[in-house]
């Protein structure tokens, strides 16, 4: 890995960590997701310093040609799994929203009916 790429990884990882901390401060990112993104930032940081370690693991553990292959495969696998996880989360949220829509609609109609009854009794 050349020096420019190493610097790019270091800057990217610090940028990610900075954005994550700012988002947590603004309450726009849940802590559980913040942890995940900080880990991604640290992973990018590790690419600059642990290049030889990844190359060793790739060759001796997975039998891959180089460390970069291991990194690509790991990142693509992670993104696929994460995408699937997010899809399930979106589905759960959509289901909850549907239930809330029904619940609020019926409750609102009941409140309106009670108000009407109260007004009629008051007159």
């Amino acid at each position: 890995m050349n020096i420019e790429l190493k610097i790019a990884f270091i800057l990217a990882s610090f940028a990610i960590i900075y954005v994550v901390i700012r988002s947590v401060k603004k309450h726009s990112l849940h802590p559980s997701f913040a942890v995940l993104w900080i880990l991604i930032g640290l992973f990018l940081l590790s690419l600059s310093f642990l290049e030889s370690f990844y190359a060793y693991v790739a060759r001796n553990v997975f039998g891959l040609y180089g460390g970069d292959h291991l990194i690509y495969i790991s990142l693509i696998s992670f993104l696929l799994v994460y995408c699937f996880y997010l899809t399930t989360r979106i589905c759960q949220m959509a289901d909850r929203i549907s239930k809330l829509i029904s619940f609020t609609a019926v409750t609102e109609s009941e409140v309106a009916a009670l108000k009407k009854e109260k007004n009629q009794n008051g007159q």
Partner: peptide, 23 residues
């Protein structure tokens, strides 16, 4: 006629079905 209004469009009839069952 009494109206039960969804605050947003749910985009499917099954949501409306759940609303009328609840009502």
């Amino acid at each position: 006629v009494p109206v039960v209004s969804h605050c947003i469009n749910s985009g499917n009839y099954s949501n409306a079905a759940m609303t009328y069952f609840l009502y």
